[in-house]
Design a protein around this nucleic acid. Structure first.
Lengths: 212, 212
DNA sequence: CGACCGCTCCCCCTTAAGATAGAGAGTCGG
DNA sequence: CCGACTCTCTATCTTAAGGGGGAGCGGTCG
């Protein structure tokens, strides 16, 4: 490690709520001669303030974090710097999560069970502003294409359905009539291609539309 | 690092399907003067064969792994060596998972978002055959006490309910009548204190009775 | 402006789900 | 051997859920 070190190292921020994962990534990254960890964050808010302070080459981001979830962090960071290079690193492989992050402007998306080499390759790719998406993840993103998306109201209803609420209960909570609640549920069933509300919950969970 | 190194180091096997997590734990453990990682495993079967080969002081085990899940590994390893010292390290905080592992003989249970110090303390405790359970986890285990447990058949039915199957469909798949399926569902609702099947799924998921 | 969309409400109708109660056959442990 | 438990099945009844329509109203956008 001598010659190629002249060029500046890739600076990386790690945002993950598990100290163990941060340690693992930090160990991997700092072992490389061409990159280094400049900061770590344990929740969404920390990730944003850290980004503002350090403006790293790459932000490695977990999707599920306390205080502010990954998608919101992506949105906020890209507001601060539209050219920010963000690599999503998560256990969630639902097409909705993937679609949301990538369409919002994240440069890469990979799963936590990825081998070391792939993780490092992804960081390098994203640092050069090249998108990185593993084939399985890309396939999921394509699956999402063509599928109808739910409206905000439908997502509200879906959330309550997933909690096991009845149509009547949902109506009360959303201050609408039971008939309207049923209309929304029907729309959800149609869009998710489900026969019953319970199946709708299963489908929505698999796709990452809801996180129980 | 000199004097206290005379006593043999605590040997540790790490079983987790995420390379990143294994790296993180390995880095943490190997930095300590009184412990070392002797093997790693990426799935349940590997964990068992690794244990048989090395007979480590502590087996750190993730619950959700390919091929064979954590609870099954705990069972098998304790068959091999009833005095095995197993520390569960997972993201799942459902009372059922915790109860199953601890009642089966795991010595410790902690969550992946635990701070470094707690993780190391847990490994040391378990290595000395002292049980380690964080207060929040212990509280969950106590919650489980008094709650009725489901029969195997009820778990079968619950699984299908969670997939969104109708009573008729469940009956066909289990080769029973729809009436019997309803009887099981009814028993499930009563035991889980739920009003509808969808709520039952939500409760069962929270408690860790099913993993979607 | 007119088309489109999202949200709201309404109707009727069929089917699935849940509540209640009873009962026979099998297994297991005291 | 006798409870206790599990699994199975039965029947009836009430209510919730789902299918198929239609329709008004406030936006937005070409």
């Amino acid at each position: 490690m001598a010659a190629e070190l002249k060029t500046r190292r890739i600076s990386v921020i790690l945002a993950d709520d598990h100290p163990v994962v941060r340690d693992g990534l930090a160990a991997m990254v700092n072992q490389q001669s061409d990159m280094e960890v400049v900061a770590e964050a344990g929740d969404g808010d920390e990730a944003i303030t850290s980004y503002e302070q350090h403006h790293p080459d790459v932000l490695v981001l977990d999707l599920r974090m306390p205080k502010r979830d990954g998608v919101a962090v992506v949105q906020r960071v890209l507001e601060i710097n539209p050219k920010a290079r963000i690599l999503i690193m998560t256990t969630y492989d639902g097409d909705e999560d993937i679609f949301q992050c990538l369409s919002q402007g994240a440069k890469g998306y990979l799963l936590k069970d990825a081998p070391r080499q792939e993780i490092l390759a992804a960081i390098r790719a994203v640092s050069e502003d090249r998108p990185y998406t593993s084939s399985t993840v890309a396939a999921k993103a394509l699956q999402r294409m063509g599928k109808p998306s739910l409206t905000q109201r439908e997502l509200d209803v879906l959330q309550l359905v997933a909690e096991g609420r009845s149509n009547k209960d949902i109506a009360r909570r959303l201050s609408i009539t039971e008939g309207t609640a049923k209309t929304h549920v029907k729309a959800i069933l149609t869009k998710l291609d489900a026969i019953s509300r319970t199946e709708a919950v299963a489908v929505a969970h698999k796709r990452g539309l809801i996180h129980l």
